[in-house]
Write a protein that binds this DNA or RNA. Sequence first.
DNA 1: GTAACGATCCTC
DNA 2: AGGATCGTTACA
Length: 169
Amino acid sequence: MSRLDHTFFRRDVLEVAPALLGKRLVRRYDDGREESFLITETEAYRGEEDLACHASKGKTPRTATMYLPGGVLYIYLIYGMYWMMNIVTGTEEDPQAVLIRGIEGFDGPGKLTRRLSIDKSFNAEDLVTSSRIWLEETGLLPSYTTSPRIGVDYAGEKWKNMPWRFKVK
DNA sequence: GTAACGATCCTC
DNA sequence: AGGATCGTTACA
């Protein structure tokens, strides 16, 4: 199977987020067991100007990962108990990321990371070279719907209404 | 130090 | 509608 490389990730997040739908997320565990799921739902967070994006407050120890070149994971803890898995996109010093909200059978960003045993140790993991998590091409181009992002009402009228949530029909 | 706040999920 | 639960951040 062909693994997605840097050219796929180093594009604008608004191209990559919908393009991730139907791609295969592969997880290889320490015991050699391997399993994979198709991605079903994503959300785009785009640059310091996007008030819903963590990088809107500038570069901090936590958000520094988002400033890396596209193709690495940005992992953070929310509400004290759920790890969120994001894929960094775009070029270096342009903070963008795609939140993975759903995979086959597991809707919800907190549920899928728990299912795949993803935690802080995956922060800045390179999807192009990692031996424990990566993405593969499937040739699928699922039709999808767009809608506003979840849980970002604090971001103000303009940004909370951006239709940057992408979900397979 | 200290306090407030979440890109959530589950149970009532 | 509300609680769990803690890293990150800003500010004193």
